[in-house]
């Protein structure tokens, strides 16, 4: 998944990275997309880092569903279903920040 430079702090993956316009947080499945391809889909690619999360860890350690939802222009598109409850959302965002790794760091 992409993380805009406004959302990263001092190279640290902060919980603010994990967000969704609805309940589904957009991610790309690495089976169909490289980290670089994911970054190039951003409006401003070089304002974005790319984070890697393992679907099994999202399901097992954070207890969130991960669904493959391919789009016509993006076969890799998937969604991590975030809770609607505010307290639960705050909890899972910390837990997601712990299992996420930086696949492509921000360009300087």
């Amino acid at each position: 998944m992409r993380a805009h430079r406004n959302l990263l702090r001092d190279g640290l993956i902060v919980p603010g990275v994990f967000r969704a316009p609805g309940s589904g947080m957009s991610v790309d499945w690495s089976k169909y997309s490289s980290p670089e391809q994911a970054r190039l889909r951003a409006k401003n690619p070089f304002d974005n880092a790319v984070l890697a999360l393992i679907a099994g860890e999202i399901r097992d350690k954070v207890s969130l569903p991960v669904l493959h939802k391919p789009e016509p222009e993006n076969q890799s598109h998937s969604e991590v279903m975030l809770p609607e409850n505010g307290e639960d959302l705050t909890e899972v965002r910390i837990k997601l920040s712990r299992i996420a790794k930086i696949a492509i760091p921000l360009s300087i």
Binding site: N6, V14, R93
Partner: peptide, 22 residues
């Protein structure tokens, strides 16, 4: 930091504990 949907995150990440207030 900016949180989801226009909210604000207050985030402490320390050696022995972590806390997030939204």
């Amino acid at each position: 930091g900016p949180g989801p949907n226009g909210s604000i995150d207050l985030y402490w990440k320390e050696k022995d504990w972590e806390l997030l207030i939204n």
